[in-house]
Structures are given as C-alpha cells and as structure tokens.
Design a protein around this nucleic acid. Structure first.
Lengths: 338, 338
DNA sequence: GCCTGGCACTCTGCGTGTCCGAGTGCCAGA
DNA sequence: TCTGGCACTCGGACACGCAGAGTGCCAGGC
C-alpha cells in the first residue's frame, strides 16, 4: 500500500494540475505545498506513483500528470465533497424557486449547474417510472381515434394517439375515463398494470378491443423509458477544455447530441448516491477524456431522475461534486413543493 | 458599376475561398477558372474590388478573401440556389416520412439539415399563431382547479392550469367544453378571440368568473409566442469552423444556447421566402462571423415557423440554400399530410 | 484605352541550429 | 530513509535564412 506521504503527493499533484493545466514537477510541488520533504524525496515518491500507474509523464523530463487511475484514487480516498457556502445555497434556492413550471425548473437547473461548475450540465426530466398518476384523460378526435393524455404528479404531460379497431362511442369513452381514473389516479406507475388488468371485462364485447388497445397504449407510455427527455446546457464551457481542444471537443459534441448516449451515461450510474465516472470508465469512447459526475434527484426521498455534469477529466472534483449534490437537493425540494 | 468580368472574378474568389479556406491569389485564380485573361489583369480587377470593399487581404502579399459585402453581392447577384438532385430529394422525403409524431418530425428535420449542410441546424416548432384548433379539453383536477389542454392541427399539445375563483361543477365544465369546441374546433387561432367573446354570457352568474378565466388562459396560450420552442443540432459541425476556431466558436456556442437569441434570429428574417444574413448583418455580435440561412415552412401554403442553418460566413451558399429550401418544402408536406 | 509581361518588393511559413531551463534518475552520504 | 549533488535529456523559445506566393507598378503592344 502507498504510504501516507505518497498519497499526499498524489493529492498535491492532482490539485496543482487541475489549477495550472500544466504537468507538475517535484520542485514546484515542494514549493507550493509544505510537505516537509525535499524535491528529491518527492521524486522518489513520484517514481513509485508512476510505477503503480497513478501518474504519468507526457514525455521524459516533463512534470507528471494524473492518470484516470490517479483521479479515481483521488476521488475515492483523498478528496471529500466540498460543500457549498451558505450564500451559494441561498442563491441556488432563490434561482430555482423562480421557476413557473416543470420545463422551467429543468431549464433553470441546467443553467445553474452549468454556471456553478463551469462545465456542461445534463438534466434528465423527472422519470415516469417512479411517479404517480394524477389524471388520465381520453379525447375522441374521430369516431375511431382516441387521444390519451397522461398527467403525472410531477406535472409532466404525455399524449398518445390510439387508433381503435372499432368506433367507440362517447358514452363508452366517458365510462372508460371514469373507471380508469378511479383506479389509477394517485397510484404509482408500477402498480398500474395490476390495477387495470381486468378492466376490459367490464365492457361490452364490441368495445373490448378498443379498451385493451387504450390500456396497452397507456402501459407502453408508462414504461417507455427510452422516450425520456433531457436537457443540456453550458456547451460553451467546452472551450475551456484545454489547448489540444479542437481534437478533443468534436467527439464530445457529437456524443452530447445523442440523447441515447447521454441517457445511457446517466443510467449506467447505478449508485443511488453520487457517481463519478472518470475518463475511460465511460463506455462511450467519445467521452474517454471526460469525467461525468451524476446524482439522482427526486421529489420525495426517492430519486426519479438524474442530473450531472460532463467535463474534462482534469476537473475540480470536490467543487463539482458539491455543486451537483447541492443542486440535486434543491431541485428535489422544489419538485416536492409543487 | 463593376464590369461583368470583375463580377466573375469575385465569384471565382468566393468559390475558391469556400473550397480551400485559404486566401486566393491572382495566379491560382486564372489557373482554376478560365477567365481568358492574365493574372496581371486579374490583379487590377482585384485592386478595384478591394477599393469597393468586396474583398480584403489578411496581410500584405497574401491572397484575397471575400468580405461580408462581397458575400452579399455573391448571394444576391452571382449565385443561384443549387437544387437538390433527385436521389437526394427522395432520401429527404423517405427520412422525414418515418417520423411518428411532431417531436419526431422536428428532431428528424434538425438531424437531416445538419447532415446535408454540415452545419448547425435550427428548427422552430410550428407556431401556434397560424395554426388551427383541433380540440380543447378541460379536466377538473380539483373542485376549483381546471386543466386546459389545447391540441392543434399540427399535433402540438399545450397545457395550462387554471385556478378558478369559485368551485366549478362537472356539469358546467362539460357544458363549457362542448360549447367551446363547437365554436373553435377547426378555426384559426387568430379568429378564436372573436368567437368566444360572448361565451360567459351563456352561463350562470356564479360560473362566469371561472369561464372568463378559462377563456383568458386559452387566449394567452394562443398568443404566447414567447413560449415557442426550437431544436438545434449539428453543433459538432462547428469544429469545421476554421483554424482560428477556438476563439470563434465560443460566442457562437453561447449564442446558440440562448433560445431567445435564436428566435430573434429567425424572427428577424421578414422575407417570407429565404433569407440570408451574412456576418455583421446579424444583430447578435457573437454571430458576427457566421451566416444564417433561414426560410419559413408550413403545412398549408403558409409559413407557420422557420428553420435554418448557422455556419461560418465562408459557407457554400448555393448548396446550403438548396438544402434548406428542399428540407423546408418536404417538412411542409409532411405536416400537411398528418 | 485596355490588356499583358516583367520586375522589384514584401510577407508568411518552414526548416535548421542553438541555447536555456525545468525536470528527471541515480548515487553516495548523513 | 531522507537528502544534496550531479549528469543527462528533452521540449520550448529564439534567431536566421530561404523559398514561394502574392502584390503593385510600369512600360510596351494590340
């Protein structure tokens, strides 16, 4: 195992490199952090750290820079989460409280997160799966065409068209609407399939086909996680990526345009708490030189969606993690209130 | 006025510069385009063009590059719109026809436009103002809380909460829903205010307040152009901007994040046909080194929204204009069909 | 009057060579 | 185990020179 001092050296290297963006040498290290030892000693430690794969040098006779593995150790063992200051927290809260609807909450969250972390922010819309149904509405647009509108407790609205196998009268529609709502209003999505299972049996044979179709459309809507939307912002911060940035930035921009990739990215983080994926830990290779810090957020105690930031592996992890955590917390509060 | 040959020289300069991204000199010009005159003559013409402000040289003894004014002349007088080839048109049509709903149409359009032009694509959602109402639905969520859902002929759905001044019975709600739809279904948004004007009078005094409030919420929704959404894509194409690109790209990314800026950008183009705004012609200074090609599109003959692309002033105008026009046309068709 | 070829001039970009400094590895000694 | 010293390496900065591309201008020809 690495000695305490070597860990300190690693921490110092990460901190300096994040600050200066330049490979850090032994002399500079001893000057900026009082480690109590000489540069030569630090050099030995560095050699050990390099053997272990925590740091690397771009070329001989340059300083060292942390590897993905080095950042990983830093995040896991050496750095805490830097909490936001009280004024910052108040500012976050004020800013988010100004939101008028769900879209606005998400938009403001993205903006805020991008500004706080000076990185690219990604916020997933509150997911359907954990939410509860507020109301289901059925509209007859044509004799054999019904529009299904689902309203969730988070204020999200989803609509779907249903082409009925047979004409469906207004009376039957009203009946179905009433029965449906009495069963599912206020219930969790997960419980809905069970609750509506036997519903077609209550209708005349001629209407059952349509009822089943409406129900299956509803269930589809409920489980259709693919359709989850998200919002990103702060892409201008990519320009702070580094000097070799033209070549780095392109795959990142491309990845960010693929909602699928981003959803996967957030989805992969299984930990209900905060997750940090560093460099090559990201499955998508366009993001191999970026780190992703993500966390779940939700209106109750439970997470209904995720949010996070994407930035260069050389990022201020404690600060970023602090900001992400704080924003998630306050968004959760806002959602719970509304 | 400039002689015919000088215009030819300008055209040749624009074409070469767009192709090579490098300042173009007199000798190269005569070699690549058979102008029928010697480099020396071209030099004289170039000097004249420079006096008039159509071209400029980055530094002495470099070739010339077109100025914004030069591009303007090129677009107005020297270049046509390059039509898409038949296979390209078929591909566009096929791609757009796969769309399943309005969101998907817009998403596909953005993708397509970005790919065709290899630039940043911006597509505004079909605007409410020109559309017609398909259906208005009212849901009672609580005794004094009504949800208003507006469905347009373009498939767009808008919902609003209405807090009623007094409890509003289901019967009254159904009555209002029926009266409202019989009056406005299938009508243009612009006509709606006139059509519902006297509606409160048909109700009991105790309900009038609520009815008025529902109606005014509806009218608000109709006119609320601010809320117009848009979608952008192809930002990865910004990396093709040029060599000095790190400094150019940042303000562009920033501008693209501001929906307001983009809406203004599209809105400014008053011409119902295609509009090209070159470099400093764009009001927003972050976009001073970009050109914007935009055009209206719509389901009927009339434009309901705009779409366009943003790219470096050094862009292939004829090709870009052709692609933008073709995409707008086919999106219009798709919207008309659905 | 316009076009042309020629000439001198001016830049930029690139390749070479040199030098300096930061940083390293290693070793002997405390 | 830490430290100071020493030789070594390499990249970045700078100067220089050269080639190439481009220009402006001028005198001569059609």
């Amino acid at each position: 195992m690495l000695s305490e001092r070597r860990l300190q050296v690693l921490r110092a290297i990460v901190q300096d490199y994040v600050g200066t963006e330049e490979p850090v040498g032994s002399k500079a290290l001893t000057e900026r952090h009082n480690l109590g030892v000489s540069p030569a000693t630090v050099r030995n430690d560095m050699a050990a750290l390099e053997d272990e794969g925590f740091i690397a040098q771009p070329h001989t006779s340059a300083g060292r820079i942390p590897t993905d593995k080095g950042y990983r150790l830093f995040v896991d063992k050496l750095a805490g989460v830097k909490p936001m200051t009280a004024p910052e927290r108040r500012a976050i809260q004020n800013f988010l409280e100004g939101a008028v609807d769900l879209d606005d909450v998400v938009a403001r969250t993205v903006r805020l997160l991008a500004q706080l972390t000076r990185q690219v922010a990604v916020v997933q819309y509150p997911s359907l799966t954990r939410s509860t149904v507020r109301h289901v509405e059925l509209l007859s647009l044509a004799p054999a065409r019904v529009m299904l509108v689902l309203i969730t407790d988070t204020g999200r609205v989803e609509q779907r068209m249903v082409d009925c196998p047979a004409p469906f009268g207004e009376a039957s529609l009203a009946d179905l609407r009433a029965r449906l709502n009495s069963r599912v209003a206020g219930r969790r999505f997960a419980d809905v399939p069970r609750l509506v299972e036997d519903l077609p049996e209550a209708f005349e044979a001629e209407d059952r086909g349509t009822v089943s179709m409406v129900l299956s459309t509803l269930l589809e809507t409920l489980v259709e996680e693919n359709e989850e939307r998200l919002m990103i912002g702060g892409t201008a911060n990519l320009t702070r990526f580094g000097h070799d940035f033209p070549v780095m930035i392109r795959p990142v921009l491309e990845a960010l345009e693929e909602q699928v990739v981003l959803l996967k990215l957030l989805g992969e983080a299984k930990d209900p708490g905060m997750t940090v994926r560093i460099g090559h830990e990201n499955a998508h290779e366009g993001l191999n030189s970026t780190s992703v810090v993500s966390v779940g957020y939700g209106s109750g105690g439970e997470a209904v969606a995720k949010l996070g930031v994407v930035g260069p592996t050389r990022m201020d992890y404690p600060g970023t993690m602090g900001a992400v955590r704080a924003v998630a917390r306050y968004v959760g509060q806002i959602l719970a209130e509304s």
